[in-house]
Design a protein around this nucleic acid. Sequence first.
RNA 1: AGCCCAUUAGUCUAUUGGUUAGGACGUCAGAUUUUCAUUCUGGAAAGAGGGGUUCAAUUCCCCUAUGGGCUACCA
Length: 507
Amino acid sequence: MKKKIRVRFAPSPTGPLHIGGLRTALYNYLFSKKHNGDFILRIEDTDKKRNIKNSINYIIKSLKWCNINYNEGYKNKGKYGPYIQSKRINIYKKYIKILIKKKLAYYSFDKKKDIIKYKKKNKNFIYNSLTRKKLNNSLVLSKDDIINNIKKKKYVIRIKTPNNKNIIFYDKVYGKININTNKIDDKIIFKSNNTPTYHFASVIDDHLMKITHIIRGKEWISSTPIHIIIYNYFKWKIPFFIHLPLILNNNKKGKISKRNINNEFPIYPIISNYKSIKIKKSYEEIGFLPDSLINIIALLGWCPNPRNNKEIYNLKEMIKLFNFKNISKSDVHLNYKKCCWINKKYINKNNKKIQLLIYNKLFKIVKKKIKKYKKKYKNIYIKNVINITKNRINVINDIWNVSYYFFINPKKIHIDKKLIKKLKKNYNKIIIFLQKIKFFFIKKRKKKIIKKFLKKIFKKYKNSIYIKTLRLSIVGKLIGINMLEILYTIKKDKIIKRINNFIKIIK
RNA sequence: AGCCCAUUAGUCUAUUGGUUAGGACGUCAGAUUUUCAUUCUGGAAAGAGGGGUUCAAUUCCCCUAUGGGCUACCA
């Protein structure tokens, strides 16, 4: 029988989760779902100083918002808990003792200052088999000294790396990687405050939690040999490693940096209400949909196969197609315009949830900007406005920009020089046209009749100058949805007012 | 400075030891729309550079350059 696939996402709560972490979580999720495996959330909070209040909540909320559900782990049931490392310290202590007994790890009494000195003297100083004999540790000192030092001095525990041995592993993305132990430190695996470092805790946990595949960012490649050494010392089975290319900041790229500085893309998925976590821009805040964010992130460094020139994938499709073979090796940059393009596709999918989101957004803005909004605009009116305008927004927050003229009068009328000339030439005719429309609206009529009349008159005045001026009077710009649609929707008295205003202006 | 990794248009990428190097976003032009957006059609745009191996290299090897990661009692 095949072993059940188990993967984990193991963030440390040092701040809000960003799209890099989110993508790692996503790939873990996709892989586990594809193989009916388990997806575990483990919190790695071994560094107390760097822990930031509420980051755990933010991480969990972000995953939830994106529909990335873990079936085991922190605040969830599971056989292998606790799933937060600060509550597992005793477990790590038990295992560190074993390594020390076997002399595969040792006490190091060197002062931090001294090691900094060595590094200053020799930039390539490494604490390992080549140097450790000259340093102050339990491999050198006598038994009595060691016991004395342990009682009196601060110490850390370091892993004893083998001398001149090539640690080779086969990454599912990067292939064969070979690192010689003489180039790596005897890493500290237990700190002087008697807590483990990441390297030790994560290996112990991954083994105890029966993790089969470790999917994580590429920045861990360099420390993988240390992890492998620990696995070997315990004679544990080494899991598969899958390292992911990183998502890089656009600003750092030389050629386009100047243009891109102001265009910085968001890196956090959702809004935060926590005081300790301030986020200026998040995808949620700007008006991205979770499904589209997932789509965007999934395609950063992964190309579904077969591609069939598709760009839009839902979770189910991604799960079906997910494969490590199609993950690219080079780091990626995000293209914000493409993000918008993808989001637009999702907004136009026309489901009720999306409509509600847009409605809530527009309603909030209307509430803010307009006094007595309840008397002026019924829900149906707002919904109607959304229906006719929403196919031209990229993100939900754009909704006001494309619909404001249904609620407020245009503040400025933008007339360019070309238009002024045309206006002057056809002044009388234009005034007649505008008056016709105005007078029609002054009389009380049913909607059907209005529609008929408008269609007729639009046919009669085919020349674009008429409708352009009409548009200017109502919208203030030469931009907007179909003019007929606008006239059907906006209230009569407003139309009359705006036309009057316009006529005054062009006198 | 050392170690590890990467390099196909502005960005994300596909394919391949023999191809007119394919697609998407963006960009430019045209059509549609009375305007804008949409949609449609078309165009420009790429194998970092230099050496090898080979009849043939973007693909394999080496060097250089560039980018990135790691070299913390951070993860």
